[in-house]
Design a protein around this nucleic acid. Structure first.
Length: 440
RNA sequence: GUGGGUGUCGCCUAGCGGUUAAGGCGCCAGGUUGUGGCCCUGGAGACCGGGGGUUCGAAUCCCCUCACCCACCCCA
């Protein structure tokens, strides 16, 4: 164990992991732009009030998962645990209400939660998400859900289950909480310790408890669906109608209530086939009250967030792996001082022509340089020694296939490589599926 | 915050009271003079997670601690 390690729950992303990450990231960007979303980058830290007000002071997120600290000036800051509140803060701060509504914003970046790490859970986690702000219609919910599904489809993720629910407006929720509490209180003694605590703090969460899933009192609890007002019901019915029209399979699950206070009306989650545990790949919901909580005018909004690590994990579970990063086209091999300088000039010329060229290591022996070139799976070695430098040529040595080593000048090398490799961007490995999942 | 599991070179693993702590992969260097991949030889790299004990003697036994992993809570 090295003395110095990455902070708990935070991980390094190594070059071999990067191709799959980039593929996910590219898909996120493509989908977002395809729906007319613009990307925003908000700071990693915010005034703690941005989150405390929006997410709900009673939520677990605020209670125990936030990284809070004071800066040197005494300001109270929080490492962002999620992005919706921050994006809404930016919406307000930049007066986006005066842009054509709704404003469609997307983000991709790290979030921080101070909880115990385990499979699929990290203290620094990456999320891609979108916020559609300024549209109260069910159509906005449906579009956001469709978009989220389109992302997963594009990535090749299969077998995801969409579960959806409506928790109504804040008022209907309050009504429901009262009813639920009234129903459960007489049976409090039969509930688990956690649930008894939630009875007081956050009744809705009692419904989530796995310990009490079989408890008759929980099973016979009133459904939030019954507490919805006519307006709530109409909204939800329209969302469902649109999903059906879009052929999006979904299950109604009255037990989804979401952890954050700002949600209203439609809420949903996407679960991978295995299900269970911390597997939720992405979730979303409508948050009509949020902007008001941040001090703005009543403004509706809806959006989703999806965990990049969880997407990657599910992808790998399904055997989808991006092949390793492309090997260089050329490895330069230099001999002697004159060769070293000449090799750098040749390398620069080849790169200008569009090839991927790994520079020489003239301090090492010719043999060692070639051995390494072979291990790197480079297509060619370009050898620049004293002799070549003197006559402005190089040896072009094919490393993989057959072929003779040739003596060429720079133009000759570019022509030869162009014929063999093409000076186009590196070959696309579009959605290549390798048989071997390589996660740990 | 609460449980359980695991900690030996960069990676995988052997060793389970007395060994200079072993091997494979990888890395580096050589196998005569400027040519890789295979093979051969050599090398670097581990205070056996850390601290305390037991013992003549500990990587091996005990205690504590830390880290990682898994689960609960909760969430992406």
């Amino acid at each position: 164990m090295p003395e110095l390690q990455s902070p708990r729950g935070m991980h390094d992303l190594l070059p071999e992991d990067e191709p799959l990450w980039r593929r996910v990231r590219d898909a996120c960007e493509r989908v977002a732009r395809g729906y007319g979303y613009g990307f925003v980058e908000t700071p990693i830290v915010e005034d703690e009030r941005v989150f405390l007000r929006s997410v709900g002071a009673e939520s677990d997120l605020a209670q125990k998962e936030m990284y809070l600290f004071e800066d040197r000036g005494g300001g109270r800051l929080a490492l962002r645990p999620e992005a919706t509140a921050a994006v809404c803060r930016a919406y307000l701060e930049h007066g986006m209400a005066s842009r054509p509504q709704p404003v469609r914003l997307a983000y991709f970046g790290p979030m921080f939660r101070y909880d115990r790490p385990q499979a699929g859970r990290y203290r620094q986690l990456w999320q891609f998400g979108v916020e559609c702000i300024g549209d109260a219609s069910p159509a906005a919910d449906a579009e956001v859900i469709e978009m989220q599904q389109a992302l997963y489809r594009e990535l090749g993720l299969s077998g995801l289950t969409l579960r959806i629910n409506s928790i109504g407006t804040a008022e209907s929720r309050r009504r429901y909480e009262q009813a639920l509490r009234a129903h459960l209180e007489p049976h409090a003694a039969t509930l688990s310790e956690d649930s008894r605590r939630r009875l007081a703090t956050n009744v809705l969460r009692v419904l989530d408890s796995k310990d009490d899933a079989g408890n008759p009192a929980v099973q016979s609890a009133p459904s939030i669906t019954d507490a919805l007002g006519p307006g709530d019901r109409a909204h939800f019915a329209e969302v469902r109608r649109l999903l059906e029209a879009l052929d999006i399979d979904h299950e109604i699950d009255p037990r989804i209530v979401r952890g954050l206070d700002y949600y209203a009306h439609t809420v949903w989650e996407f679960e991978p086939p295995g299900g269970g545990g911390q597997s939720t790949v992405g979730a979303g919901g409508r948050y009509d009250g949020l902007i008001e909580l941040l001090g703005g005018p009543p403004t509706p909004g809806t959006g989703f967030a999806t965990g990049i690590e969880r997407i990657i994990r599910t992808l790998r579970e399904q055997g989808i792996e991006e092949p390793c990063a492309p090997a260089p086209d050329v490895v330069m091999v230099a001999i002697g001082e004159a060769g070293a300088a000449w090799a750098m000039r040749v390398a620069a010329a080849l790169r200008r022509a569009g090839f991927v060229v790994r520079g020489a290591t003239p301090a090492r022996s010719l043999r060692a340089q070639l051995r390494t070139a072979g291990h790197l799976d480079a297509r060619y070695a370009v050898i620049a020694g004293e002799r070549e430098a003197a006559t402005a040529v190089v040896q072009l040595k094919p490393l993989s296939a057959t072929g003779e080593e040739r003596t060429l000048d720079i133009e000759g090398v570019i022509d030869a490589l162009g014929g063999a490799i093409g000076s186009q961007p590196p070959a696309q490995s579009a959605g290549a599926r390798a048989a071997e999942p390589s996660d740990a």
